[in-house]
């Protein structure tokens, strides 16, 4: 129970890495407010969280909207009175060659993957600073923010942006708040499954597995494990770190 008595906000908490992180935080004793856009998926996530006997709350949120962050801050203040952990997991993925990419799409991906993190820090920092100990923010970036891929200019650029945002926020928020990022490679979860809807599932898993140096295709729990380490007091001297969870893909 590494998070007993702790309070947490997880964005993108209705599916994928965010949902797994919210579940794990609840399992380890935290009270969690998770946010997302899809209310029907939220209902299912809420049931799973409550089944764990934990205390979980849901708020619908578009992470690119200031007014939605203000409502989350208000809710956190009312429910918890402070915040110990913020996990910025919401984000979008698109791909395509630059000639097929509209400026509008580029800006939208940036808003979802970078503005969202900035707004979260901006509006929840006062509550994080009221944490009883040192609060912790974990941003879910991507290996694509560390290394480039062809036909992936929007996503790669935005994820690199979120990494530098992490470093600068680590400096600004210290010493009351730690800020770190995980940079995961591909993991098999409902997001990847949805992205490959209509294709052969086992064939796609094989494709992703074989594309890693270590022929292992993880799932959301592998990233959640790293997030929980960084979010917990076990990492009390860790800030501004970019931690790859990528089966070795970023090492060569």
């Amino acid at each position: 129970m590494r998070f007993k008595g702790k309070t947490a906000v997880v964005t993108g908490g209705t599916s994928g890495i965010g949902k797994e992180t919210a579940l794990r935080l609840v399992k380890e004793g935290a009270e969690v407010l998770f946010t997302g856009r899809d209310e029907s998926r939220a209902e299912q996530a809420l049931q799973e969280l409550e089944k764990l006997g934990g205390r979980a709350y849901f708020q619908q949120q578009d992470v690119t909207k200031t007014e939605d962050w203000l409502r989350v801050a208000e809710q956190v203040d009312k429910t918890f009175g402070r915040l110990d952990v913020l996990v910025n997991s919401a984000g979008v993925f698109t791909y395509g060659a630059i000639e097929d990419t509209t400026y509008e799409e580029f800006k939208n991906v940036w808003r979802s993957n970078v503005d969202s993190v900035l707004l979260g820090m901006k509006h929840l920092l006062p509550l994080l600073e009221q944490a009883s100990g040192v609060a912790s923010v974990v941003n879910v970036s991507s290996l694509s923010g560390v290394m480039g891929h062809p036909d992936c200019v929007c996503y790669c650029t935005s994820k690199a942006g979120s990494l530098m945002l992490t470093r600068v926020m680590a400096l600004e928020a210290a010493p009351k708040v730690r800020v770190n990022a995980v940079a995961p490679g591909p993991v098999w979860n409902e997001l990847l499954e949805r992205a490959h809807a209509g294709q052969d599932k086992e064939e796609m898993q094989e494709y992703y597995r074989e594309s890693q140096p270590m022929k292992f295709l993880g799932d959301s729990s592998d990233v959640a494990n790293g997030i929980l380490y960084l979010a917990s007091d076990a990492a009390r001297y860790v800030t501004g770190t970019i931690f790859r969870i990528d089966a070795g893909r970023g090492a060569d």
């Binding site: 680590a170 490679g185 993991v187 140096p213 990233v223 494990n225 790293g226 990492a235 990528d246």
Partner: peptide, 23 residues
């Protein structure tokens, strides 16, 4: 953490523990 199966997808990674100094 790195020794345990929690890190079964982690290899070739660097983990920095420096209070943010290297930033």
């Amino acid at each position: 953490y790195l020794a345990s199966d929690e890190a079964r997808m982690v290899t070739g990674s660097e983990l920095t523990i420096d209070g943010g100094l290297s930033v």
